[in-house]
Design a binder for these strands. Structure first.
Lengths: 219, 219
DNA sequence: CGCACATTTGACGAGAATCAACTGCAGTGG
DNA sequence: CCACTGCAGTTGATTCTCGTCAAATGTGCG
């Protein structure tokens, strides 16, 4: 990160006020021209069916960008919804600089490209998860993804990470009913695959959970 | 489309030889630097689980680009596989020109952006389909998507479009077993929602199928 | 004709949804 | 201080969707 980039980031940043759970950061179809960095909390990309069924297509966590699309002029293909209370920073200036003059801000531009790449890959993961995996595999697979992403920002010695979502919201992410999420989580706790306490999850055995997620270990 | 763009496209194009079903156009992880236009046939973006389960994450049909990513340097996040015999044209030159000098080829650049936008939106559709829809809804929803895309290239008076996929492959797209695809298709034919004959599907009543796809009409 | 492959059928079981009720708990206000 | 409220989590009973296994039928093709 060069001097110009550092200066850009350390400029006075407009902190947005706290945002309540359920608030829509960006509406379906709106222009994604005001990207934000998530300081704390989680955002979900939400699609609704007419009869009320809900699918959360992607999750965005603290340290990641939201309401952001690397392609100028892109519109929201889903609603961006606060799944928890949020603190955000507007980073439109930084992002515009990086995307508009990539040669002057090479590292920023690279970071944005990687973030975008990651988000795309995650979307394919999500299709596989809900399309072809069993309930316990979906949970294991998601837990590993979230653990990896949290560890990148806040490395944890104990393989623990925050899980502020209710089981209902989790169901909307995983394509499962609340009740089934609950029962499956219980079974996974009994099997020593996952510990869930006080709004965070812990993975006692990463290798083991990996086997479960990949389906190589039967239920 | 300006003169320069037209000249670029009408230059001698290297036709690739026919490609057989099952051939891998681009391997998982490979650099997507040789985009191709599909002259005929369908390509699938394929992800495999260790135990052999397969999820087709996206479909690409004649008239669309494959092995293409608008972001320079992007790698394949799934295997690009020929789901039918294929005829392709290499369009790396055209795409490089459009992405490298968007100001000189504004229309081409716009087309590529739209194609990319569409692909992304389709991916969200796919998550909703396999995550929250019932079997007959998934089929209806996919049929409408394919109809719309075909109609854009080859408008049809009878709401018909080619369907070269076997029910097994269709199952891998929809996250369903072959048997269940078969039974569900039969029921939908009986209900007059879909006519399937000789490698093509026909939609007798678009509005009706839309209701089914949106879940507003119960099974 | 015979082969390979796609579609279809039946029987059965497993995974997940649904409905309804109950528990636990934090916040609120009397 | 404690009833009251609302919400998240839990449980049981039941139903439904969908998967699996196996076999049969249909179809294009060398």
């Amino acid at each position: 990160m060069n001097v110009r980039e550092t200066a850009l980031i350390s400029a006075d940043l407009p902190f947005s006020a706290g945002i309540a759970t359920g608030h829509e950061i960006a509406a379906l179809g709106s222009l994604l021209d005001r990207p934000k960095l998530i300081l704390s909390g989680w955002v979900g990309l939400v699609r609704l069916l007419e009869d009320g069924r809900r699918q959360i297509v992607d999750l965005q966590i603290a340290g990641e960008l939201t309401a952001f699309d690397i392609r100028p002029g892109a519109t929201a293909k889903a609603a961006y919804v606060a799944l928890t209370p949020l603190r955000l920073v507007e980073v439109g200036d930084v992002v515009d600089a990086a995307t508009g003059q990539p040669d002057r801000f090479p590292n920023l531009a690279a970071v944005l490209r990687m973030a975008d790449d990651d988000a795309y890959s995650r979307l394919l993961d999500q299709v596989v998860r809900v399309g072809r995996m069993l309930a316990h595999e979906r949970i294991a697979h998601l837990a590993l993804d979230l653990h990896r992403r949290h560890d990148r920002v806040v490395p944890s010695l104990s393989n623990a990470f925050p899980m502020p979502l209710t089981q209902e919201v989790l169901g909307d992410v995983l394509g499962l009913s609340t009740v089934h999420v609950n029962r499956t989580l219980q079974q996974m706790r009994r099997d020593g695959l996952l510990k869930t306490a006080g709004g965070s999850w812990q993975i006692p055995d990463l290798a083991l959970l990996n086997e479960v997620a990949s389906g190589s270990r039967p239920a």
